[in-house]
Simulated assay, not measured.
Amino acid sequence: MTITYSCVAHGRAVLAELALTGGSYQEAAAKVLRQVLLKAEPATIIHIGSYVYHTLFIDGITYLCATDNGLDSMAPSAFLKKMEYNKNQRDNNTVSAVKSQVTDVKNIMLRNIDTVLEREIETVSIITEGAEDPQATAEEFEKTRKIPKRIWWKCFKIVITTLTILLSIIIILLRTHIIPT
């Protein structure tokens, strides 16, 4: 008994597939997916042609594999359960990774804000120290005023870019159902 084809589908949309031998499995897999959705049973075995299609249907996701022998159902069953287990493990890892990235970005933002505040305090102290000579104070203020603004804008752009990237990643993960809704 050999598993010759496997796929993971959401509804009738195949998300990932692998064929180990030549042949057109897509048409037969589409028929099997249609029948699985109609029956909505957790496990199904369907004979089409010379292949036996084994399915595992959990939470709208169908795990399917095709074998060339209908006598052994233990190996395909174990294979499908392993596929489902790996998906759950990956989902948990993905959520943890996103949480970790959000925490990292938050820490970076806090450090950037602290840096900007420290520079603003330095600017204020320079202004108050040079208040005795108005002309020198004006020139010094003009020089130091431009630096924090540029730094602030750079930090602001970095924060906005980072938040945009994280939001995009979260939207993509939600749309592909990697993060369950």
Rank of each mutant, 00 (worst) to 15 (best):
Q26K: 12
I178W: 04
K154H: 10
A29V: 07
I108G: 00
Q26S: 13
I158F: 15
N69K: 07
E142K: 15
L167V: 08
G60S: 03
T62K: 03
E129Y: 09
T4N: 09
I48E: 12
K81I: 06
D104P: 00
K157D: 14
V95M: 11
S125K: 11
E41Y: 06
R12H: 13
A13Y: 12
R175L: 09
T4A: 06
L110W: 01
H47F: 09
H10L: 12
I113D: 00
Y5A: 03
V102R: 10
R90C: 11
T67P: 03
N112L: 10
T55L: 03
P180G: 06
I147G: 00
K106F: 11
S100F: 08
L71H: 11
I126Q: 06
K87G: 04
A131N: 10
K99P: 00
T115L: 04
V102K: 10
L33A: 02
K87F: 13
I179P: 03
I170W: 08
L163N: 15
I172K: 13
A75I: 13
T103F: 01
R145M: 13
G130F: 06
T162H: 09
K87W: 12
H54M: 02
R175K: 14
I147R: 04
M1V: 14
S168M: 10
T67Q: 03
P180V: 11
I58N: 10
V98H: 03
M1I: 09
D133W: 07
F79W: 05
M83A: 08
T162G: 05
S73K: 15
A136L: 14
I172H: 08
E120S: 00
E142P: 01
G130V: 00
S168H: 13
L166A: 10
A19L: 02
Y25G: 01
R119Y: 05
E140T: 11
T21V: 08
S100R: 11
C7V: 05
I160D: 08
K146G: 01
E142T: 12
Q26I: 06
G22S: 02
I45T: 12
A40S: 15
D133P: 04
F79Y: 06
W153I: 00
T4F: 04
V102S: 01
Y85L: 14
R90K: 11
I108T: 10
N86R: 14
S100H: 08
Y25C: 00
N69R: 09
K31R: 15
W152L: 01
H47C: 11
V95T: 08
P76I: 01
D104N: 13
I3Y: 03
A66I: 02
V8A: 08
E118C: 02
V8L: 07
E129C: 05
I170G: 04
S77L: 03
A9K: 05
V95W: 06
Y53L: 07
K149C: 04
H10V: 04
R12I: 07
I48Y: 12
